[in-house]
């Protein structure tokens, strides 16, 4: 399977995703420029973290209209896999490829720390190497990661199992303290209705080697690979 990693002006983690895929996982990954109109054969596209277009207006609001996004939307409509990490998650919400939106952290502060996440649905292409209830550790680094969705929509995505990861404490329990940004229902990752578009605030690409403090990110990338 060929991966594509999009670089918008202001993307930061595109190179880290490419490093994780190419160097650590030995994958064929192509770098895509925001002005590209084609995906160059990529079957799985990653929208990385960063501050695309300076986060002007709203995070992800301008990136969603980049030329590459037409091809990304087409890939998603055809059932191809699209993964948005952090700013990429914000872009996918703005593009309405994922439900809900991401807004300013409850604390109003930028947060950079390692968090514990509980796997809520392990039967999706992004989580199939994990087990339901399993706890994983990944870093987060964002100022606008508070997940919001209108009440009805929230109920629907919960019922359909579209919530993939939740922020929890070390024992796997939910608490206000363990929810770093104040996300509704402590949501850290969601999927679309057809489970081929995924968004998460934590950074799997920063957790792919033991020397970086953990390798749980490999389980997410590896899951996508297994389905291919």
């Amino acid at each position: 399977m060929r991966w594509g990693v999009v670089t918008f002006p202001g993307s930061l983690d595109d190179r880290d995703v490419l490093y994780a895929l190419r160097e650590v996982m030995g994958q064929d990954a192509v770098s895509l420029w925001h002005k590209d109109e084609r995906l160059y054969g990529a079957e799985c596209v990653v929208l990385p973290g960063g501050f695309s277009y300076g986060d002007y207006l709203r995070c992800g609001a301008l990136a969603r209209f980049a030329p590459i996004m037409n091809s990304v939307a087409r890939l998603a409509a055809e059932g191809g896999v699209v993964l948005g990490i952090c700013n990429g998650f914000q872009v996918l919400c703005e593009a309405r490829l994922l439900p809900g939106a991401l807004t300013r952290n409850r604390s109003l502060s930028f947060i950079c720390e390692r968090v514990t996440l509980r796997v809520e649905n392990a039967s999706t292409p992004l989580t199939r190497l994990l087990s339901p209830g399993e706890l994983i550790r990944l870093p987060i680094k964002h100022g606008e990661g508070l997940y919001v969705a209108p009440e009805q929509e929230l109920r629907r995505i919960e019922e359909r199992g579209q919530v993939l990861l939740r922020y929890v404490d070390a024992d796997g329990g939910l608490s206000a303290q363990a929810n770093p940004n104040g996300s509704m229902n402590a949501i850290a990752a969601v999927a679309n209705e057809s489970f081929n578009v995924f968004g998460l605030m934590p950074h799997p690409e920063h957790a792919v080697e033991a020397c970086l403090g953990g390798t749980h990110g490999l389980k997410l990338f590896g899951s996508l690979l297994q389905g291919a």
């Binding site: 409850r106 109003l108 508070l146 919001v148």
Partner: peptide, 13 residues
Amino acid sequence: TPKRGVLDPQGRA
């Protein structure tokens, strides 16, 4: 403006 019911941490602060 943020919709009613949407958490507005800046407004609250």
